[in-house]
Write a protein that binds this DNA or RNA. Structure first.
Lengths: 325, 325
DNA sequence: ACAATCCACAACGATCGGTTGTGCTTCTAG
DNA sequence: CTAGAAGCACAACCGATCGTTGTGGATTGT
């Protein structure tokens, strides 16, 4: 199916005559006739009834028309998505099914009029760099790393503290506990999935383990989520951290549990990053939406790494005192 | 923008390499390279970073990808809409913004999984003929005309009695009435808009006028809805019938009123038409939805033409006794 | 260092798409 | 009734485009 033929079809419908459509498209009437004939041959149905005073839609043509308009609209949207200048707001999230993607989705529901494109860049460094260079407008990451300052012009504000939960099998000591105090992790072994090595999670795990005296094991290469589930399910000592929002295809027959941690609840600090001189109107709306919807302290006493606590403290100031506003 | 290039782009993304994409599309690697280069030139942005072990999406490529998939999906839907055999359910409605279209819209909301295409055919005869010939699957019309039997195989069941209201200007005798008894129309002049002459409404008006003793005037040719509003607004004797669902662009400065009629309330009888041997699964769903959602007698005592009353009586039988079920 | 992999460029040929010219049908005005 | 106008389709021609084969440059891994 040729998109030019579809556009010609719509033009012919709107004009009512092939001749006027040809004039509007700046081609000859014969070209319109050939394009539509080719489209009809392609679809295998007749779209117009040709009469002496124009062309009239057949039933098939009437049915096809809204689909044709949709197709042209999709083409326009696709072209606009990469057109420089006044394009949709580009936001990077760490994963399309994780909590930050949920935040962006909520924003989209609250502001459906703001065009939105969501991307996932490989790693926090790439995300920060893309924000700095203007290739994307915003990113939701945990990038307030120790010793790693944000580039000039890039600003950040915390938008979500995501609580971690302990993920254990049925034979684990904590399997039947309603909640587990984080301090009880001391001296135990926590499994770190191989697929997050080298990501921004590593620094989080390191400080978390140091603060509460447990050890982090990396068990071999990453064989995928199924192997993770099997390993956890069969072990009475291994545990790992997941969040409520971690998407799992729960295997039938396994008896896995997500145990809440408390006193304090460890939280993973997601921040919004943007470039201070980015004039995109949607960016302001996104920032205000995220700041407004971020719960203050929903999980009682929480723990976050020192580099994140510093940011947290700053965020508790009134908005007027916040930098970059 | 060439749709084949977009399809090539998506194939290259899925494959990760131009070579494999070329194999999957049964073209040469060079053709893939040229198509994507042309697409990039067309869009004005780079979509891939070419490396020695494949092609990787740029940020622009990531943004473009979902739009590209949407475009291909739209193309597939468009082609499927006219493909013979297992296509979407085609329903004819008398007008896209009138009550029957609302019924179909409700059906779509209740059964979003059923593909639906809505068309508007010129006149009830064309609709009945299209149903008979199988070009469309169903129609909502008032086609149980006197002396005009449905073709063999075409069946009908009433689905909506739409109440008529009196439409008058501020100086009309009934302008301040909360309701008007239909019998009070006797001897008065009712204006029939010119654009419904020759349609199925004519027979309705004729019998309605005969039953209640008013006269139907046709005032000149149809100059559009604005002229109708002006005429009604300035007249102290003219009135016309409209329904709640009639879409009007209410003019500023006019003081027009829609007065309910009662004792009995005249209703316009919309029926669903379909071909008995049409096996489309969506058709059964549509019929059951419309029959189930049709209110029995929502407007108190109602009046409908004799040819419609006959059908009404038949429809009050239990479903098992209904023909064609 | 060499082979393998992957993509881009060049040249050539076939197909496609647009234009001009023409003919047929239908509607309308005289 | 007839002639003209309007509207679309068919035919011939021609140029642009698209795909192919052949080749080269760059990177990775052995």
């Amino acid at each position: 199916m040729d998109i030019a033929a579809v556009r010609t079809f719509v033009a012919a419908v709107d004009a009512g005559r092939f001749q006027s459509a040809a004039a509007r498209l700046s081609i000859s009437q014969q070209a319109v006739s050939k394009r539509i004939a080719a489209l009809e041959r392609d679809l295998g149905v007749q779209l117009f009834v040709r009469t002496a005073r124009g062309a009239q839609l057949t039933i098939d043509g009437q049915v096809f028309l809204p689909h044709a308009r949709t197709l042209l609209h999709a083409e326009e949207q696709a072209a606009a998505s990469v057109r420089p200048g006044r394009r949709a707001l580009r936001v990077d999230v760490v994963g399309r099914r994780l909590a930050p993607a949920g935040l962006v989705r909520d924003f989209h529901l609250a502001h459906p009029e703001i065009g939105l494109d969501v991307v996932t860049l490989p790693g926090a460094d790439a995300a920060v760099d893309a924000v700095r260079s203007g290739l994307i407008d915003a990113s939701i990451r945990a990038v307030t790393m120790p010793g790693r300052r944000l580039p000039d012009g890039v600003e950040a504000t915390p938008v979500l503290d995501e609580p971690l939960r302990l993920f254990v099998g049925p034979t684990h000591e904590f399997a039947t506990a309603a909640t587990v105090a984080t301090a009880r992790l001391a001296g135990r072994r926590i499994w770190m999935p191989g697929n997050i090595r080298g990501t921004e999670w590593t620094a989080y795990y390191d400080e978390f383990a140091a603060a509460f005296g447990f050890t982090v094991d990396t068990i071999g290469p990453d064989f995928g989520i199924e192997v993770l589930l099997d390993t956890i399910a069969e072990s009475s000592t291994l545990a790992t951290f997941l969040t409520d929002r971690t998407p799992l295809v729960w295997p039938v027959g396994h008896d896995l549990r997500l145990i809440p941690l408390c006193d304090p609840t460890p939280v993973y600090p997601h921040s919004l990053l943007w470039r201070a001189d980015n004039p995109h109107p949607g960016l302001t709306a996104l920032r205000e939406h995220l700041v407004a919807s971020a719960p203050e302290h929903p999980y009682g006493r929480t723990w976050a790494p020192g580099w994140a606590r510093t940011r947290r403290a700053a965020s508790t100031l009134p908005p007027d005192a916040d930098s970059g506003r």
